[in-house]
Design a binder for these strands. Structure first.
Lengths: 106, 106
DNA sequence: TTCTATAGTTCGGTATTAATGAACTATAGA
DNA sequence: TCTATAGTTCATTAATACCGAACTATAGAA
């Protein structure tokens, strides 16, 4: 299993972030993580309320979110715990995540 | 030539907008249109400073922007004049375009 | 220590979508 | 009517996404 990679702050691009946000499922995941800002969630928790996505697809979505720089994930035991890179993102693209969540309904 | 179609405000989706914004060339177009908010630009003007994109690709990008609801285009003579749907977008997704332009550099 | 369940990842094939050269349309002006 | 301009559409190739099946890594039970 290859190690999880995360881009450095300076390598995160606006268009990369927008790409990650251009999918309903990923927006729902982000919304779940945003609700629980202060704690990390495992995949199942982060997928709470999102219907019936195959595990492989879920894994793909988390990879997209990770590799564009929106979330940070660490393996803990047999789970993978993720959280938003809130402070970093807010430093690089002020207001982006907040605006997104303000405008996200569903 | 089929007529240009634009979605109604209620059919514009957040993920659709993000998809349109997930491309460097389209972000550059948006930035050009944003600079000249008050006037409409033809394709060539809107592509100002953007290097060497084939006409067919340009046309494709404008179509994506149009069909997601970011811009409105009308044919005027042999040109196609476009402008941001600024007020409408601001009503539906407050702050989205402004945040995007604040965070766009290039 | 093995066995089993859990939580996720990776691989590979199919299906969808994007980019672009070539041909086309529509209009303006000579 | 002829030519140039501004852009669109079509068709092909190239890149990506989705998802079942097989795999990995860990935890806890037997």
């Amino acid at each position: 299993m290859r190690p999880m990679t995360h881009p450095n702050l300076e390598d995160i691009t606006l268009e990369g972030i927008f790409y990650a946000l251009s999918d309903k499922t990923r927006l729902r995941i982000i919304a779940n993580l945003y609700k629980e800002k202060s704690i990390t969630l495992n995949c199942m928790q982060a997928m709470c309320g999102i219907d019936n996505i195959p595990a492989s697809t879920t894994s793909h979505h988390f990879r997209v979110l990770r590799e564009c720089g929106i979330i940070r994930s660490v393996r803990e035991g047999k789970e993978c715990h993720s959280q938003l890179r809130l402070d970093e993102l807010d430093q690089k693209f002020p207001g982006l995540l907040q605006m997104t969540m303000n405008n996200w309904s569903e």
